[in-house]
Design a protein around this nucleic acid. Structure first.
Length: 638
RNA sequence: GCCCUUGUAGCUCAGCUGGUAGAGCAAUUGAUUUGUAAUCAAUAGGUCCGCGGUUCGAAUCCGUGCGGGGGCACCA
């Protein structure tokens, strides 16, 4: 009879076979009430699975991630059931749990509307109220396939066919309605509660392949309590308020227009921010021994053929045909141009590592559906650099790059960084020995950062392994920014070489790296991270001087001039509006410092400071203001 | 690129089942000269995204193109 090991190590013997639910009851009444799912020897199972043999178990409630995910999975099932009750000809496909919720993909000719979502939600509530008991059956594979084919559920039948031999084909019943499912599920539909909401409908390809037909996906969110659901919805709203597309407009930073989808029209303030980031990077890279170069935007087709881009990425490249019918490509990457600079003149091993940086504007013809504000554009500026080095130098140079990246992220307010390490893909160039070396070198650099990292098997570039730097913003979202790639391919293809100690010509290794990735993208991330309230030193317009009445215009103009000559940006607001109006106006524009000037200030040669999001007033002598804020007008690490 | 959805003044939006457009803010002008988040009034402002169709008549209905949004696919 089973000896059950509980999470605290206690072993309890039961005289006969028992279910998870009965174990929970033995432990406590409240656990029995709240229990959602059980793990038996580490595998999640239904609470009413019968246990006959010795094992260790753990019972989860909705407070555990495992429990919550089970609830979400159940909600997805109820969604499918509700949809089939309302729209009988709809076929069900898959409905997994995702972060914060779930989705379910359906095959149906007519599109689901927003109204349908409301109806479906209501029906889901009814199903919960019916409190249908969950029943699990294991079916013979052939029987299951026939059954679903007969029902007209061709997708389900296809899914069953792809279940590996030896695995159970389990069917879950909620009343009459049933679905192929791995489980586990709650014991009845009533257990799920009504803390769910359907959020959106969209298209999704069957099995994620764009060659397949498109299904309709309904997304939903589901929680253990009403409070959790409310909090989640509030979180979504807060994130929407930070949307860089909304703030970019409100703060007058940039805009897009039809004539050039996916290309930014930078306004004065947005461009000021852009330039500040570049100034900052220049300083950091100069310190780190980079030499800044610049290469042509338009380059002859033959170069792209040699580099391999024409073949592999041609469909994403803009091209241009001249009046005399020559074909040029607008660069989608800076690397070939950079190699050309390396190739000019003879290089010695003494020149290595040679670090060349470039703020290169690249154009990529991205699919229209991929465009998204500043985060995914067709024309963007990379803070790119290429490091030419020997194989022996790879590890050290990778370490230097990762440290530089982390320092820069920290300066800009991102301390939470994780790494994604990708190794050799199936389709690749170069010997395995060289790959071994490159992967080991890069992995060593990853480990040296002591940061959390994931290994993405087979996702490296065709020319070498890579690391991607993912930063987590103020509200917990992840953004992929920087990248570091080891390249054994391109230098050879483009004929790069250096003269080694022994006088022989050798091919250098090239490291590609970008820290922000794309300036455009990074600015979008910055806006959302700070909700538009930038730290003083990168704020595109740092001060607005406001005279209390026309009488003090001259003083305000004088103050603003002095501020500007100390390197802090400033404008004077001479509009014919009252003080309250101007304070509101510039507060909404998220100007960090408003400087009020009236009689008192003129008399004492001072300004009264009002900081963004504070209604405190602080009077300060102009001289002191200039020294105080000049000191604050630079990166934290400086 | 694919599915769904959407496009009205500089911005945010209203405009029911077809009868050639409206608000608030912004702008301009005038009055007010203001001490910490919207002073008052007047004026001006629109190829209702483009093209084509249905209709006596289209912002409204249909087709198509372009752009935006949500996803999917893509992301060197």
């Amino acid at each position: 009879m089973p000896n059950i090991t509980l999470p605290d190590g206690k072993i309890v013997n039961f005289p006969k076979k028992i279910t998870g639910f009965q174990i929970a009851e033995k432990i406590s009444k409240s656990l029995a009430k709240e229990a959602v799912v059980i793990s038996i020897n580490g595998k999640l199972k239904d609470l009413d699975s019968v246990i006959e043999n010795d094992c260790s178990v753990k019972i989860f409630t909705s407070k555990n991630q495992e429990g919550l995910e089970t609830i979400r999975h159940d909600t997805a099932h109820i969604l499918a059931m509700a949809v089939q009750e309302l729209f009988p000809k709809t076929q069900v496909t898959i409905g997994p749990v995702i972060e914060n919720g779930f989705y379910y993909d359906f095959a149906r000719k007519e599109p689901f509307t927003e109204d349908d979502l409301k109806k479906i939600e209501k029906k889901m509530g009814e199903i919960v109220d019916r409190d249908l008991i969950t029943k699990r059956e294991v079916w013979n594979r052939e029987k299951a396939i026939k059954h679903f084919e007969k029902k007209g559920e061709i997708y389900k039948a296809e899914l069953i066919k792809s279940i590996p031999d030896g695995e159970d084909v389990s069917i879950y019943f909620h009343g009459e309605w049933h679905d192929l499912c791995r489980g586990p599920h709650l014991s009845s539909t009533g257990k799920i509660g009504k803390f769910f909401k359907l959020t959106k409908v969209s298209g999704a390809y069957w099995r994620g392949d764009s060659r397949n037909e498109m299904l309709q996906r309904i997304y939903g969110t589901s929680w253990a309590t009403q409070k959790d659901l409310d909090n989640y919805l509030i979180r979504i709203e807060e994130a929407e308020k930070r949307d860089h597309r909304k703030l970019g407009k409100e703060m007058d930073l940039y805009h897009f227009r039809e004539e050039s989808p996916g290309s930014v029209f930078w306004h004065e303030k947005g461009w000021a921010l852009f330039q500040k980031l570049i100034d900052y990077m220049r300083m950091k890279q100069d310190e780190a021994g980079y030499k800044e170069i610049n290469t042509p935007e338009v380059l002859d087709r033959s170069l792209w053929e040699k580099s391999g881009h024409w073949d592999k990425f041609g469909s994403n490249m803009y091209t241009s045909t001249t009046p005399d019918e020559k074909i040029f490509a607008i660069k989608p990457m800076n690397c070939p141009g950079c190699v050309e600079v390396f190739n000019q003149g003879l290089k010695s091993y003494k020149d290595l590592p040679l670090k060349m940086s470039e703020f290169g504007k690249v154009h990529r013809y991205e699919p229209s559906g991929a465009l998204h504000g500043l985060l995914r554009v067709r024309a963007f500026t990379q803070d790119d650099a290429h490091i030419f080095c020997t194989e022996d130098q790879i590890t050290k140079e990778c370490l230097v790059v990762t440290n530089l990246i982390l320092e820069i992220y920290k300066d800009l307010g991102f301390e939470n960084v994780i790494l994604k390490y990708s190794d050799r893909p199936d389709v690749r160039v170069g010997d395995d020995q060289v790959w071994d070396k490159a992967e080991a070198a890069l992995l060593e650099a990853v480990k040296a950062t002591k940061l959390e990292y994931t290994i993405n098997k087979g996702e490296g570039a065709f020319y070498g392994p890579k690391i991607e730097f993912v930063l987590r913003d103020a509200i917990g979202r992840d953004w992929q920014c920087g990248t570091l790639q080891v390249d054994f391919n391109l230098p050879g293809r483009l004929g790069a070489s250096y003269v080694d100690k022994d006088g022989a010509k050798k091919i250098p290794v090239m490291l590609h790296r970008a820290l922000f990735g794309s300036l455009e993208r990074f600015i979008g991330i910055l806006i959302e991270n700070y909700a538009g309230k930038f730290p003083f030193w990168i704020s595109p317009l740092q001060t607005v001087v406001i005279p209390i009445s026309e009488e003090f215009d001259d003083y305000a103009i004088k103050v603003s001039k002095e501020i500007k000559s100390s390197g802090i940006s400033s404008i004077v607001d001479l509009k014919k509006h009252n003080l309250n109006y101007k304070i509101r106006d510039h507060s909404l524009a998220k100007i960090p410092l408003l400087l009020i000037c009236g009689k008192k200030e003129v008399d004492t040669n001072s300004v009264t400071i009002r900081r963004l999001d504070s209604n405190k007033q602080e009077n300060m002598e102009l001289k002191k203001f200039l020294t105080t804020y000049s000191a604050l007008n630079k990166a934290p690490s400086k």
